[in-house]
């Protein structure tokens, strides 16, 4: 049952990415390119996604457990560390460079052509080495 609902959630996510045009790298780069022909579509996508998600967080606050059992995620951590900033900056640079982030990268694999596979495999490679870099960043943080 958990797998079925995960599949449904993934299906909604994948169709949303597809329908919204977020698998089109030109749309993403068009949004980031404020000095070119600026394309505001991404703001509509993000805004649209916030609505059901914000409602879901309100419903979550009134429930003790998820519908399928188990536990809800812990409250959002408030700590702003440099891993958050450094990681997000690296991610943003790659996002701008190719116009793809992890969700759309997977959603476009079936029809986008070889370039999407090249990006996807490189991304998996990055994810494989990331824990080692992450530990190094932890180590070099001065003791407080």
């Amino acid at each position: 049952m958990r797998a079925l609902f995960a599949f449904i959630a993934g299906g909604l996510f994948g169709s949303g990415l597809f329908i919204s045009g977020m698998t089109d790298t030109a749309k993403v780069q068009g949004w980031l390119d404020v000095f070119g022909a600026w394309d505001p579509t991404l703001a509509f996508v993000m805004g649209g996604a916030m609505i059901p998600m914000a409602i879901a967080w309100i419903i979550r606050a009134r429930r003790d457990t998820p519908v399928l059992g188990g536990t809800f995620p812990p409250p959002a951590p408030r700590e702003i560390d440099r891993k958050l900033i450094i990681g997000s900056v690296l991610f943003g640079a790659g996002w701008g460079l190719a116009g793809l982030c992890p969700g759309p990268s997977l959603a476009s694999l079936s029809y986008g052509g070889i370039g999407h596979w090249v990006f996807f495999v490189a991304m998996l490679g990055g994810m494989l080495v990331a824990p080692r870099l992450s530990i190094r960043l932890d180590r070099t943080v001065p003791a407080e």
Partner: peptide, 25 residues
Amino acid sequence: DWVWGLVGGLLIGLGGAVYLLANGR
């Protein structure tokens, strides 16, 4: 494009809502 962006966005958010409320993730 903006309309489809909004529709797609709603589906994305709905996916996130299902994953949170049903699976707790």
